[in-house]
Nucleic acid binder design. Structure first.
Length: 618
RNA sequence: GGUCCAGUAGCUCAGCUGGAUAGAGCAGUAGCCUUCUAAGCUGCGGGUCACAGGUUCGAGUCCUGUCUGGAUCACCA
């Protein structure tokens, strides 16, 4: 039962699929197919057996019906069944013009004027691909959730980009969304960096060291670990057992004392804490702003852990929790196949779970959300299973609305990153490097000699972030991904800059067409003789609303990323195969300009869902 | 050891609820800039979809087992 994906299908089915004024062709084909089976074979078949899919490009046709599952109903061979259904479809659906049969596959061709109508009705819609508002209670999406003892790294980048993009995709799906950050600003790990700074920091500050606040504090966290390890080694050298030594260092006990003092509100500890945290926040703000990540609400654990403790008291009264002799508080989950879980330490200080209980409660009280999505790495699957279980035991029915969007780790070629050991890819460093690559690449191509410094800077930022974000988001969130810092991120092929380039290319066409006063009014086509590539683009554009809908259901920006790549690639082929501005037939020329603009706008909307901006030129 | 996740081309990844001859990019290689941006386009080479069984008209996709890798089972968060 545990660690199962939480099904969102029930909830998200309320997302309407009625996007166009004309009914989606897939649905139409499906309905007619069911009717065909009913008329021809007097049977109602389960929808599952009615398979309508896109025709593979090597065959003629637009949509394919797989007839094998229907043979049981028809009691005839595949060829004959396909023949009968094909004939029924052509007679009963004006959108279907012809069919062909290959083995058990019935390929249907869709009428030109269906595609023409689609184009005519949507090419000028600014909100093409956007779904209408629903009235569901808001969805709270939590992401980022940094600790204030170290700067953001590559793992946070995936988290931030995913969370932000998912929120955007849900909004685009018509949902009200609240973006939330939970800052882990207290706890033993924070005390470690505080202690190290106090001991060896010599009153250094971000200003005095000219170091970014989060980076400075992170250095002391690493220093603590280093000194602590030295102490452990010394203890082992004195003959102490390894595990025993790890628990017995003076440094660790000092950190523990500091945590207790913090919870007791000791003034100098609190003061040092807020000073160092404020350094970190200003560092985070810079990084978030650069990444283009923002939040509607920020929670601090220092403000929610007390509520967590209150819930622990509640649980004790309800007797779903129990105390041990040393005073620590636990929840027994053995009935659910899990162990006992600690909720309060013997000294009364709270742990991760305590805080998360409090935060969940607070968030529920604040928003009464229809869904609480936690964007957290899959290494914490167990934690979230336990969190839900405990909330349920406390009688919180809303716990069922919690879902954990568990994404995979970002691994380096040599394995996992560990902050304490310093082999992390720092978020700021990575963005700096990407920026440098963008600048160098652009300068080599020598296209922007006329741009001002500020304009060039803006462009390099856009391109480097586009490359980084696309690189991360194109991968299925659930999958562990590998990042090789040495090879760095590409700017050619299936990349952000490739798509950005395509957009810039389109904008160039549009600019030129405007300068020449070519296209004055809205284009309406009819009885148009499509080029193959023109139709291919229209069909892809036709898919966009389906893709945005699906990515909202599956909480997967990767679907949008891959779709956008396909669209850009298709456009580039079109661009090379046909002339646009120099086309002598005015109708064709105008249509191609309009199709270009439609494509450009869709690329822009799609990339916006990934948090990637697209340039007018590059 | 228990539980969970993954294994597709040299590398990084697609492959939706099982459907036709498994797709892209990078890297390799051969071409295309006196027509709209070459960060582009067109070829070629590259695969026992970890392995073995099973279910099915049909399996990369579902089931079982094995192998390999990762995560987790903390008085860390």
């Amino acid at each position: 039962m545990l660690n199962k994906e939480i099904s969102l299908s029930g909830f998200f089915s309320t997302f309407a699929l009625q996007i166009f004024s004309l009914k989606m062709i897939e649905q139409l084909l499906l309905d007619t197919l069911l009717k065909a089976v009913q008329d021809l074979y007097k049977q109602d078949i389960p929808v599952k057996l009615a398979q309508v899919q896109k025709t593979r490009p090597e065959f003629e046709g637009d949509y394919t019906i797989v007839v094998f599952p229907l043979l049981r109903s028809s009691k005839k061979g595949p060829e004959q069944t396909a023949e009968e259904i094909g004939s029924f479809m052509v007679t009963n659906l004006k959108e279907v013009t012809s069919y062909n049969i290959i083995k058990g596959f019935l390929n249907l061709s869709i009428a030109n004027d269906y595609w023409e109508n689609f184009f005519n009705e949507n090419s000028n819609k600014i909100d093409f691909g956007k779904h209408s508002h629903n009235n569901n209670a808001p969805i709270v999406v939590e992401y980022s959730s940094p600790n204030t003892n170290k700067p953001l790294h590559l793992g946070h980048i995936r988290n931030n980009l995913l969370g932000w993009s998912v929120a955007q995709i849900l909004k685009n799906g018509g949902q009200q969304v609240v973006k939330v950050n939970l800052v882990n600003d207290r706890g033993i790990h924070i005390c470690k960096s505080m202690l190290a700074w106090k001991k060896w920091g010599d009153n250094i500050t971000p200003e005095s060291s000219n170091n970014k606040g989060d980076s400075l504090v992170g250095d002391y966290y690493v220093l603590f670990d280093k000194k602590n390890k030295e102490e452990i080694s010394a203890l082992i050298a004195d003959g102490m057992d390894k595990d025993e030594a790890a628990k017995s260092t003076v440094l660790l006990s000092e950190a523990k004392t500091m945590l207790k003092e913090w919870e007791d509100g000791k003034e100098d500890v609190r003061e040092l804490w807020s000073t160092m945290n404020s350094w970190v926040y200003s560092g985070f703000d810079t990084t978030y702003a650069r990444m283009g990540i923002d939040f509607d609400k920020i929670y601090y654990e220092s403000e929610t852990y007390l509520l967590g403790k209150k819930l622990v008291d509640e649980g004790l009264k309800l007797e779903v929790f129990f105390s041990k002799e040393d005073g620590s508080v636990w929840c027994d989950l053995s009935e659910d196949g899990l162990d006992e879980k600690l909720l309060l330490r013997a000294d009364g200080t709270s742990v991760y779970m305590t805080q998360d209980l409090g935060t969940a409660q607070l968030r529920y009280d604040d928003y009464h959300p229809s869904k609480l999505i936690y964007v957290v790495g899959n290494e914490q699957n167990y934690h979230f299973d336990v969190l839900k279980l405990i909330l349920k035991k406390l009688g919180k029915n809303w716990a069922q609305h919690i879902s954990h969007l568990n994404y995979g780790m970002v691994e380096l070629p040599h394995g996992k990153m560990k902050s304490r050991e310093g082999n992390v890819v720092d978020a700021d460093d990575l963005m700096d490097e990407m920026y440098e690559t963008a600048r160098k690449t652009s300068e080599e191509l020598g296209k922007f000699d006329d741009l001002s410094e500020a304009e060039a800077d803006k462009l390099y930022n856009m391109l480097s972030l586009g490359a980084l974000k696309y690189f991360i988001l194109k991968v299925d969130p659930k999958k562990t991904m590998t990042f090789n810092p040495v090879e760095s991120i590409d700017f050619n092929g299936n990349t952000g800059p490739f798509i950005q380039y395509t957009h810039a290319r389109i904008r160039s066409i549009i600019r030129k067409s405007k300068e020449a006063n070519m296209l004055q009014e809205v284009i309406v086509i009819s009885n148009y003789n499509f080029e193959e590539k023109e139709l291919a683009i229209i069909k892809l554009l036709h898919d966009f609303p389906v893709v945005t809908n699906q990515s909202a259901t599956m909480l997967s920006p990767a679907l949008i990323a891959n779709y956008t790549y396909e669209l850009a690639k298709e456009y580039n082929q079109f661009y090379h195969e046909v002339v646009i501005l120099k086309e002598s037939d005015i109708n064709k020329r105008n249509f191609r300009i309009a199709l270009s603009e439609f494509t450009g706008n869709t690329i822009k909307s799609a990339m916006a869902l990934l948090g990637i901006q697209v340039p007018e030129r590059m």
